[in-house]
Write a protein that binds this DNA or RNA. Structure first.
Lengths: 218, 218
DNA sequence: GTAAAACCTTGACCTGGATCAAGTAACGAA
DNA sequence: TTCGTTACTTGATCCAGGTCAAGGTTTTAC
């Protein structure tokens, strides 16, 4: 991204404590956001207060663009889940920038397309997979992300991932409850697929996990 | 859309019978599509063959853009559900056009944003609402669409909508089964919310439906 | 107009996972 | 290190909605 400097020139930095509501579903959006440091969740609440997490984003990710381009309000809410520094990009300045920089708009289109793909997968998970398959898929996704971040080949070591969020949040992300998460982790351990030590998960059968994530009965 | 002519200049028209697979999840996308006439569904299939519909699009809607901007393959499949005429826009020509036409890229960004919003609602429905609420919400959406299409005020008439798709497809759209759709329609009739005559639905209690769609127990 | 096919309804049954309740483990502050 | 808080686990119970099976209705094609 060579446009980064231009973007930073118009960005306003805002520090937030963990648990700060950045915007709420229905609010008017007069700009969008980039995670600088920390971590945020984008989520919906049901009438009864149940939460469904749509995304969890760390440094470098943008969020809250939909109202900028569509002109209506935020379709979901966003909250920090760690102490964070968030950059705010005012709408007008960004639109100026994007209309004069075709490459930037192509990047933005690619970014929204990625998000559409991610939603596609989330809908598939919620509607077509049962909870064990969703959980297995989540663990595998974590592992893939980890591999692409530090591609140094780790031979001869049990593959391991560390949950980046609490198990309660994980439940809200994959559309279930903490109790169910707990029970299914246990079943996975019994089935020799993983070992769990607090937030660390050791994958003992990549193949088994992978199979569970697609066709998955446990 | 003043760009329409330019787009039509690079589009290739293709007629398809009902039930024709336009593209399949995983295929390489070397362009995207616009519905000219007819109707299509974009959907995912589970391992066991269960279907979840992501969108149903009629004339004027674009689909299959994700690979064009993101460079990977289709995240879902698309099929005609009526005899249809579909326009194909080859990737290269479209990218040329879009990089030289800022307004077109803004339109595209707005379009993808709308789709993100729609997915957001679908995820909320699947995860946070029960089937009766989803069905009520669907009927209300149909009614809103109808109103915005023909805004001539219809005073003094029972509000009515016609299901644009089969009940089996409706089940796949809202994430349930035909049997459940059938039972819930019956309950809605018993609760004096609607009358059903084959594909025509007469709304007898807008308020009741509306309440059911949000907080909804039946 | 009639037959075949596709679609829809209804009933009986079953199960995944939610909920409620109570205990246990991990974590942060003093 | 200990206390208080927050996070997680485990058990018992319950129900929304899925599945299977059989019958009814609507649409399509000739």
């Amino acid at each position: 991204m060579p446009q980064l400097e231009k973007i930073q020139a118009i960005a306003i930095e805002r520090p937030f404590n963990k648990g700060h509501l950045i915007f709420q579903e229905g609010d008017t959006g007069d700009g969008f956001y980039i995670v600088n440091t920390g971590k945020i969740k984008v989520f919906k609440l049901s009438f009864e207060g149940k939460e469904q997490i749509l995304h969890i984003y760390g440094p470098g990710h943008t969020f809250g663009e939909v109202p900028v381009f569509e002109g209506k309000n935020f379709p979901a809410s966003a909250m920090t889940i760690e102490d964070s520094s968030i950059l705010f990009l005012p709408r007008d300045k960004f639109v100026d920038l994007i209309t004069t920089t075709p490459a930037l708009s192509m990047n933005m289109l690619a970014d929204l397309s990625k998000r559409l793909r991610a939603f596609t997968i989330q809908i598939e998970n919620l509607s077509l997979k049962e909870v064990p398959a969703r959980l297995a898929a989540y663990i595998l996704t974590l592992f893939e992300e980890k591999k692409s971040e530090q591609p140094g080949s780790i031979v001869n070591k049990t593959p391991m991932v560390t949950l980046p969020i609490s198990k309660a949040q994980l439940a809200n992300l994959i559309g279930t409850t903490p109790e169910t998460i707990s029970r299914i982790f246990k079943k996975m351990v019994d089935a020799q697929l993983i070992e769990v030590k607090t937030k660390d998960i050791f994958i003992t059968s990549m193949e088994g996990l992978s199979e569970l994530s697609e066709s998955g009965r446990l």
